[in-house]
Amino acid sequence: MGELVDDVMALTGRHMRHIIRVPEKLIGVTIAPVVMVLIFGYLFGSAMTVPGNGNYREYIMAGIFTMVMFSAVGTSAAGVADDLKNGLVDRFRSLPMSRYAVLLGRTFSDLAMTALSCVVMAAVGLLIGWRAHHGLLKTLAGFGLLLLLGFTMCWFGALIGLVVRSPEAVNTIASLMTMPFAFLSNSFVPLDGLPRWMQVMAEWNPISAVVSGCRQLWGNPSTTVSDALPAQHPVITALLTCGVLLAVVAPLSSRAYNRAAAH
């Protein structure tokens, strides 16, 4: 266990150095989310009304947070595909290191980046009028849900990177695979208008669960009207769906990693 921690720390250090060398990477995790907050908050917000006269800017923040968690898929996928291409994975696999270390180092580093995004976005959110109303503990619990989703998405990205392998194609494929998840949710629009079957899918979508969970924990306006289980207990549903996804995706990624060949 101690060895695993050492390995993961060494590899996390590697990824942090990448960020110092390529500061452009920081733009993706800081500026882009800020732009999203502003666009959704002001541009769309001026044209939308939340049922029950809720504040739209408070309403959409949870949705934007989850969107940014989702973008971790592409980041992790591209990183893994890069390592495969240039032969580093071969080198790592020939070392007496823990077999989970490479993927853990990757997913933890990418998670740290998404956490940074959260901090920046929260600051901008506060500026434009978003508030969490239920105290520090519940506020942090909401961010905990977001990071769990982010961590799950990092592993999902690692799997995509290991399977797709081409650094050029991986980003497109990652967004194609995640797009339906992101939009078939309650992030930006209420679900009442959808056909029944889509509504059910959207309700069980981990994104929706995390969004609703955050709104509940933060005391932000919510549009939940359904009496379905996930809509009534979003926090538990979020933990459950992310947990199940992680339990499926992480072992699959490890397996793909152990079989990965450089060419």
């Binding site: 060494a10 590899l11 590697r14 060398r21 390529v22 080198r91 070392l95 007496p96």
Partner: peptide, 16 residues
């Protein structure tokens, strides 16, 4: 993206 020294130090750490 790492320097020569950083590369070797990283692999050395992974060699324990």
């Amino acid at each position: 993206r790492l320097t020569g020294r950083e590369n070797l130090t990283l692999i050395g750490r992974l060699y324990r």
